[in-house]
Computed example of a mutant assay.
Amino acid sequence: MVYDPDGRFDAELSLPLDREPHMQLVRAVISWTDPAALQPRDADQIALQLTGHARAVAAEVRRRYAGLPLDAEPRVLAEAVLEEADRRLAQPCLGTLRCVQMRARQVRALYERLDRLNKAAAVRGQ
């Protein structure tokens, strides 16, 4: 995945999401319980990776919901998740387990929303 922690790559650029390796990282990070087991440099690198991927998934969520009516439930819920993601991802990386886990949870939430948008699109397409 492209390293893009600030979300500057072209919004029209649609890269395939490398979901499974990132979700494996998300599951691993969320399962960690010992803050001392993670060095600050490692936490920074993991947080940067998750931030870049979260921004890529958020861009895909935005593309998927853009064509929905303004009052459509999937769009309203996606907007709420995206607002939360924008707020959280704008916070600086702190080199802590808590920071890394927050970014992992954000990736997970964005994928959950993307899956729901895909299901809604499939139902509308039938």
Rank of each mutant, 00 (worst) to 15 (best):
V2K: 13
V2C: 05
Y3F: 12
Y3E: 12
D4M: 01
D4A: 06
D4C: 05
P5V: 00
P5N: 02
D6K: 08
D6H: 09
D6E: 10
G7P: 05
G7Q: 03
R8D: 09
R8I: 06
D10R: 09
E12M: 11
S14Q: 14
L15V: 08
L17P: 05
R19E: 14
R19K: 12
R19T: 10
P21G: 08
P21D: 06
M23D: 11
L25E: 07
L25S: 11
A28V: 05
V29S: 08
V29W: 04
S31V: 01
S31Y: 03
W32T: 00
T33N: 08
T33I: 02
P35Y: 04
P35N: 06
A36R: 14
A37H: 10
A37Y: 01
L38Y: 05
L38D: 02
Q39Y: 08
Q39E: 14
Q39D: 15
P40Q: 01
R41Q: 14
D42V: 12
D42H: 11
D42R: 13
A43C: 07
D44W: 12
D44Q: 13
D44T: 07
Q45I: 07
I46M: 14
I46N: 06
A47S: 15
A47K: 11
L48C: 05
Q49P: 02
Q49E: 12
Q49C: 08
L50I: 03
T51S: 14
H53N: 07
H53F: 15
A54K: 01
R55Q: 10
R55Y: 05
A56L: 11
A56W: 04
E60L: 06
E60K: 09
E60F: 01
R63T: 00
R64I: 00
R64Q: 13
R64N: 06
Y65A: 06
Y65S: 08
G67H: 04
G67T: 01
G67K: 02
G67M: 02
G67W: 03
L68N: 05
L68M: 14
P69M: 04
L70S: 13
L70C: 05
L70M: 08
L70A: 13
D71E: 13
E73A: 15
P74G: 00
P74F: 03
R75C: 01
V76I: 08
L77I: 02
E79V: 07
E79Q: 13
A80C: 03
A80H: 11
A80W: 04
V81R: 09
E83C: 05
E83N: 11
A85H: 07
R88L: 14
R88D: 07
C93H: 10
L94K: 10
T96Y: 09
T96G: 06
L97T: 03
C99S: 15
C99W: 08
V100E: 03
V100M: 14
V100C: 12
Q101R: 08
M102Q: 12
M102W: 08
R103H: 11
A104I: 03
A104N: 05
R105S: 13
R105N: 09
Q106C: 15
Q106K: 11
V107F: 05
V107A: 02
V107N: 03
R108V: 04
A109G: 03
A109F: 01
A109Q: 11
L110V: 01
L110W: 04
Y111F: 15
E112I: 03
R113N: 10
D115V: 02
D115P: 01
N118K: 12
N118S: 15
N118L: 13
K119A: 10
K119W: 04
A120T: 00
A120N: 02
A122Q: 14
V123G: 02
R124L: 12
R124S: 10
